[in-house]
Structure formats: structure tokens, C-alpha cells
Design a protein around this nucleic acid. Structure first.
Length: 427
RNA sequence: GGAGACGUGGCCGAGAGGUCGAAGGCACUCCCCUGCUAAGGGAGCAUGCGGGCAUAAACCUGCAUCAAGGGUUCAAAUCCCUUCGUCUCCGCCA
């Protein structure tokens, strides 16, 4: 959510910056809502002040045993106008809130201007992709070839966009998450978190998935209780740890890492990535979250992205870092780096991590605050990034570490996690 | 699943229709006194949203908030209803 003060003071500037991301700000709608709000709120508060002071007089008179009927009649006379005003004001504030909730974040100045992913800017590449002297297979053929990846059975059990792994491949997948967690905890200073996989609507509103993106979520309706949603990312439960909190200055930065399954309905992507594990309804992800003081988020963004890159480097996977352009950046983000890993079978770099700085956008929705050096309360900045998407990392390992015989070599750093296993093949 | 108790500021805790945004204590901040790993005195100290206001800070001021939402009333922390949460006992269970 944007700062409403910014819209009041400089709506043209806001409109201009939102236009770079292809969003048209309805200035007249805002100004109409805002001017009605101002007069109505002032009037309502005036009436409330009146009522409050008159009611106090009633109390004073009665305690003295005097007649309060005349004052009570005055209060009663206020009642109709006050109630009408309160109702209208309530509606108006809701409309304003809905309007504000629909506005995406302002991109930072360093974000390249563009319309689509074609305009994203590559920052750097790490490692030249390996050359193969045989015909490469994709991860589906590799996994099915060794009998450890089984989409047909997953479809029978659940449906499309699910996967089933067995044996050493399943173990490799599990161990990958373990390796990522260990690295972030022991080398990058994160605190490990275990969090709920089902969350309430308030949490999703806090991080910006609701109200706008409900169709992307799996929703659990309950007969006698509020609905719950399956988390689309650990960002939701972990960032909401600080919702409605005021943190002490010395508690920051908060660096949290959390491994969870993620659930996405993928509505609207029916034709895309239908083959394999790239786009699933359920996938595992290790998520990095940082909660920092407002002045520190730029540096924290670089640091966090570096932590995700470190995992790719330790696994010896070629990747590139891309700055998303204004047209491709997420709704809540002020700036996003995508890390894209090389997939030999696709001859392309594919997203494996997305590292975003949300600045105060989520914090404002969540009322997540801290005290600064002068003991004043201010909104924190929130950041997160995948460190990494586990399923896609597995895909990248399978494809990049494949051998001519269809077996898969295990990256060095993972071997201790697999009891020394160096290669995975059909048994 | 059944029965009961409870939810008040950063924390503890009073308040049981009226001058209560809320006693008292702890913690914290500033000042004074003192001089030693302490004690004493004074002041300040919830959050959100408005208005003064024109950019920020400061300040003044209004409204709202005593788990959340609704209701009764001239007036609600206090009475009623619903929801959420916590605790205790019983049952069940990984």
C-alpha cells in the first residue's frame, strides 16, 4: 500500500511513476473520494466532539442530582445527522482503502523502464554453460529414465501439475532443502523458522496477495470458521511475524529462512510449462526474509540476492542475474532481481529465484514498525527472495549434471548429505 | 468433542454504566541530587487516523481504539450477542 500522504501531496508524481509500470492512476476518482472524505470526516468528528462533551455534562448534572433532560434532548437532536455521517464515512473509508489497496508499489529509480520481460536487463552471468558431446535429455526423460520421477502416478493421485519422486531422486530433493537451510543459517546469519502452511486472509492482505490475487491461491472453506489459504510462498507466514508489531531498534535486522511447500493454483497459465516440474501446484522452496530499518533496505537487497546466488555457485549451476523492468515487476515490489539458471534441454535461462525489496509497501499494510535512533516510530522495510526454489534446483541439477548414459552426477557439496553417493542412476 | 474461567498500555495489574485513554507498580527516557557496582527526588512515557498545515520536524488540537465485530444507552473497558484467542479439567489423539 502506498502512503496516502504521497497521493495527497504529489498525485502527478505518483501517476507518472505508476505509468512506467503500465498502471493508469485514476486521479479524478482519488481526488473525488479524498475531498468528500475530508469534509465528511471533519464534520463527523465535530459532531462526535459535541456529543461527547454534552454527554459528559449529563454525567456531571446527574451526579449533582440536577435535571439533565434539556442536555439529553440536545444530544438526541445530534443523533440522526451523526449516524448518517458515520455510516457514509465508514463506506467512504472502505472505498478509499480499496482504491489504495489496488495500487501497485512505486518502482525505484534504478529499475529499467519497460513493458514486458523482454525489457528486463541482464546484470551479469556466472559460469559458461557446459558443452555436451551427446544429445541432452530434459529432466522428465532423465527422471523417468531412471524410474524415479513419475508424473502419471501423480496425476492419478492428485491431477496435473503434481509430481511424484521415489528413491534417490526423492532423497536428493529433500537434501537440497537441507543444504540450502544449513548454508543460510551457518554462513549467512539467518534464523531458521518453521511456520504454518495455512494462513488467514489478514496475513495474505499484509503481504499483498489479497485482495487482488485470490484466484492464484488454494482456499480452504470451513463450515464454522474463517477460510484458510494454502501458502503460495513462505513469504506470507514469515513476513507476517511482524504484523502489528513495533520492534526495538536493536532487534533489526531480522534475517529469517524458512523451508515450506508452496501451493499455487496457476490459474491463467494453462498452456505454459505443462511438461515437467517447472510449474507445479505444489513445490518446495527455501525462502529468505529480511525485516530491516528503512535506511538499510537497498544494501539488504543486494546482500540477500547474493545469498541466493551463493547457493547456485556452491552447486556449480550456471546462472545470470536480471533486473526486472517496470512492466514485469511484481505488484508489491519496488525492485526485483531474478536469478535465472541455465537449463540445457531448453537452451535457456529460467527463473529459479526472485529477490525483491518491498520497502514500506507491505509494512504499511501490516503496520509493521520499529523505533529509530530517536525513538520515533517508523515503518520497517521488508524483503524476500527464494534461496532457492527446490524443485527447479533439482531440475537444474538433473539437466546440467546428466551423463551420456542417462545417470545424474551429484554436485560435490551435496555428497556428504547423501552418504557419499556420487551419481544417481537406475537401480 | 464436553464443561468452566479469562482476554485492559512494552510488562504486571486496578477499574464492574458517567468527569476513564484508563489508578498503582515495573521497565524506559530526560533532569536534579549523590558519588559508587546502588539509592532518592522531579518530569515524561500507547497506537491509528484527521485538522491547524503550505515540504519535514516540533508543537497544538479532534476522533477512534481496553482481543475483533455488532447491539443497548444521552453516555460502554464496564451490560447483551457473535467471532477469535488463551488457560484449566474430562474425553480423544500423532
Amino acid at each position: 500500500m502506498l502512503d496516502i500522504q504521497l497521493l495527497r501531496n504529489n498525485i502527478d508524481g505518483v501517476a507518472e511513476r505508476l505509468a512506467t509500470r503500465g498502471f493508469t492512476l485514476d486521479r479524478s476518482a482519488f481526488q473525488a473520494l479524498e475531498s468528500e472524505r475530508k469534509s465528511l470526516q471533519t464534520r463527523t468528528q465535530e459532531l462526535q466532539a459535541n456529543r461527547n462533551s454534552l454527554s459528559k455534562q449529563v454525567g456531571v448534572l446527574k451526579s449533582r442530582g440536577e435535571d439533565a433532560a434539556a442536555v439529553m434532548a440536545q444530544v438526541a437532536a445530534l443523533k440522526d445527522e451523526l449516524e448518517a455521517n458515520e455510516v457514509r464515512l465508514g463506506e467512504l473509508l472502505k472505498e478509499l482503502d480499496a482504491f489504495l489497496s489496488g495500487l501497485p508499489n512505486l518502482p525505484q529509480d534504478s529499475v529499467p523502464i519497460g513493458r514486458s520481460d523482454a525489457d528486463n536487463v541482464e546484470i551479469r552471468r556466472w559460469r559458461v554453460p557446459r558443452r555436451f558431446d551427446f544429445a541432452v535429455k530434459d529432466h522428465v526423460d532423465l527422471g523417468e529414465g531412471i524410474g524415479q520421477l513419475d508424473f502419471a502416478t501423480a496425476a492419478k493421485i492428485a491431477g496435473t501439475r503434481f509430481s511424484l519422486m521415489r528413491g534417490e531422486l526423492a532423497r536428493l530433493h529433500r537434501v537440497l532443502a537441507q543444504f540450502m537451510l544449513d548454508t543460510h543459517v551457518t554462513q549467512h546469519g539467518y534464523t531458521e523458522v518453521y511456520a504454518p502452511y495455512l494462513v488467514n486472509a489478514a496475513s495474505l492482505t499484509g503481504t499483498g496477495q489479497l485482495p487482488k490475487f485470490e484466484e492464484d491461491l488454494f482456499k480452504i472453506l470451513r463450515a464454522d470458521a474463517e477460510p484458510l489459504y494454502l501458502i503460495p510462498t513462505a513469504e506470507v507466514p514469515v513476513t507476517n511475524i511482524v504484523r502489528n508489531e513495533i520492534l526495538a531498534a536493536d532487534e533489526l535486522p531480522l534475517k529469517l529462512v524458512c523451508h515450506t511447500p508452496c501451493f499455487r493454483s496457476e490459474a491463467g497459465s494453462y498452456g505454459r510449462d505443462t511438461r515437467g516440474m517447472i510449474r507445479q501446484h505444489q513445490f518446495d522452496k527455501v525462502e529468505l526474509v529480511q525485516i530491516v530499518a528503512a535506511g538499510d533496505s537497498l544494501a539488504a537487497h543486494e546482500e540477500l540476492t547474493g545469498h541466493a546466488e551463493r547457493i547456485l555457485e556452491m552447486l556449480d549451476l550456471p546462472y545470470r542475474r536480471v533486473t526486472l523492468c517496470t512492466g514485469d515487476i511484481g505488484f508489491s515490489s519496488a525492485k526485483t532481481y531474478d536469478l535465472e539458471v541455465w537449463l540445457p534441454a531448453q537452451q535457456a535461462y529460467r527463473e529459479i529465484s526472485s529477490c525483491s525489496n518491498f520497502e514500506a509497501f507491505q509494512a504499511r499494510r501490516m503496520q509493521a514498525r520499529c523505533r529509530n535512533e530517536r525513538n520515533k516510530i517508523e515503518l520497517v522495510h521488508t524483503l524476500n527472495g527464494s534461496g532457492l526454489a527446490v524443485g527447479r534446483t533439482l531440475v537444474a541439477i538433473m539437466e546440467n549434471f546428466q551423463n551420456a548414459d542417462g545417470s545424474i552426477s551429484v554436485p560435490e557439496v551435496l555428497r556428504p548429505y547423501l552418504g557419499g553417493t556420487e551419481r544417481i542412476s537406475a537401480r
